[in-house]
């Protein structure tokens, strides 16, 4: 156990599926050689096969504390990196005979391939957005799987990092991570993953995915900070719960579950007898505690609907944006680097 642990809470009722987090991360960290197919931050429409494809069925993690075998996703499962033929279309004199497409084999999967598709039957279709990053687990399967002790969990903040000097690219961590949030850099021949923007955190700045999120979905902070949003949402109000707790890694990203509109009966009237998003589906993602969290959230929403106040919802509203970051709220523009 680290002395302290940074964590995030993602409010799924505020997630827009806009992928600004995804792009924020891509532009900051995964643009170098060998990283072109990496998306350390992803958002997928649920239900769906996600990224990498079928990751939820890929094994790894722990069952009753015992490490489980896991599968390695392929580049295609992650979606690979696509190159397009702009030059050919625009400048090579081919007229309308060439149109813009992926060079080479046409893709059959991508990191957001099943966007806005969901499940159910019209009009009782359902879906929601599920943002994911590395969970910086308290019991990290990747760290425990690595035979080279190349993965470290930092004492000061619990951030899990792959030591790229030690890593030999064996990918046992990729197999072991049940969330499939580790990528392999084919050029540097090392595994890489979300670093919780540690260079920013070290300077008191929230991670880019959180600070750049226009939906104000991502709360950040230290888990033990009772004045911060993480402790309040996870421990005090118990409205945020981890994804796939049964994977046994004790993830440090928590989710406020989605409250969907009601479903309809065969006549087209509102049917309150069961929810639009089936409970069993949410339980399959977040475990049984999701139903408690939902009940807590709905009760608070009923309070404000009736004109009352809710401290919990005030936290989720975040009247002051900076309150979302548990003190990691420094403006990065106030930093000026000196050339050494």
């Amino acid at each position: 156990m680290s002395k302290r642990q940074v964590a995030m809470v993602f409010d799924l009722n505020k997630c827009l599926g806009c992928q600004t987090c995804t792009i924020a991360c891509k532009r900051l960290w995964t643009r170098e050689e060998g990283m072109d197919y990496m998306w350390w931050a992803t958002v997928n429409t649920q239900p769906g096969r996600g990224t990498p494809r079928d990751w939820e069925q890929s094994g790894g993690g722990f069952k009753d504390g015992v490490a489980q075998a896991g599968k390695l996703p392929t580049r295609q499962d992650f979606g690979d990196a696509w190159k397009f033929n702009h030059e050919e279309v625009f400048f090579e004199g081919k007229g309308q005979s060439a149109h813009l497409q992926v060079v080479g084999e046409q893709p059959e999967w991508g990191p957001n391939w099943d966007e806005d598709q969901g499940a159910g039957e019209y009009p009782n279709a359902y879906y929601f957005y599920l943002p994911r990053i590395c969970n910086h687990c308290t019991h990290p399967a990747c760290l425990e799987a690595c035979p080279r002790k190349a993965i470290v969990k930092r004492e000061e903040d619990g951030i899990v990092l792959i030591d790229e000097d030690r890593c030999r690219g064996y990918r046992f961590c990729m197999e072991a991570c049940p969330y499939k949030k580790i990528y392999f850099n084919h050029v540097k021949k090392v595994s890489q993953k979300c670093i919780f923007c540690f260079p920013r955190v070290e300077q008191g700045v929230a991670p880019a995915c959180a600070r750049m999120c226009p939906g104000r979905v991502r709360f950040v902070g230290y888990k033990d900070d009772q004045n911060g949003p993480i402790w309040k949402l996870v421990e005090k109000y118990k409205v945020a719960i981890p994804l796939h707790p049964e994977f046994g890694t004790e993830p440090n990203v928590f989710y406020v579950p989605p409250v969907a509109p009601p479903r309809y009966d065969a006549e087209g009237n509102i049917d309150e007898s069961k929810p639009r998003i089936p409970d069993e589906y949410l339980v399959s993602l977040f475990g049984p505690k999701v139903l408690d969290a939902l009940a807590i959230l709905k009760a608070e929403m009923a309070k404000t609907r009736a004109g009352g106040k809710s401290e919990m919802l005030d936290v989720l509203i975040a009247y002051q944006w900076k309150s979302m970051f548990g003190g990691l709220d420094r403006d990065p523009a106030t930093i000026e680097w000196t050339k050494s």
Partner: peptide, 12 residues
């Protein structure tokens, strides 16, 4: 003798 439980599980 594989060094980590995950590897042992994967190669069992």
């Amino acid at each position: 003798l594989q060094p980590t439980p995950a590897i042992r599980a994967a190669w069992a």
